[in-house]
Amino acid sequence: MLFAGLFVVLLTEWPRPAVAVAQGGERALERELQNQARTTLLQRLYGPVEDLRQQGKMANALLKLDELERTYPGEAHGLMLKGEILAGMGALEPAAASFAAGVRRNGDYIDAKFPLSRRAAVSRLVADGLPVIIEGTRRNPESRDLGLALKNLRYLQSRLAGGCE
């Protein structure tokens, strides 16, 4: 009898499906809002850097990034943009370092579905840069810079390959 009574109480207390769905929907909406707000903020903050990059003013874009770095140190988006700019300038090693630091900080930049994804740029750098750096380390095995660049590129290669982490 006691258990039957408790069961009835439970049934009356149980959130109705519509309420539960609404709660779930609210949580999903909050998450979506958070993501969109972050994306919009990053696009607004780093928009001038993008503009400078598209105008071909790479040095100015890097200076603007340095300025933003002082306010938002270690922000993954800044690191990824820096990697893109450096890669565009042909500076393989620092580009690899910047991309690797950005992906370590926020792995979303490797995901194809992420709105700010830089997967294509990272894939290009790995595909073009890895043979060059491997050849460089073969010729100059004692170079610490080349060794570090190789490590960064292989890290990015592994992240691009996927896996569970």
Partner: peptide, 9 residues
């Protein structure tokens, strides 16, 4: 050895 998914060396 390198560039494998979800792996370190």
């Amino acid at each position: 050895l390198h560039g494998q998914p979800g792996a370190h060396v």
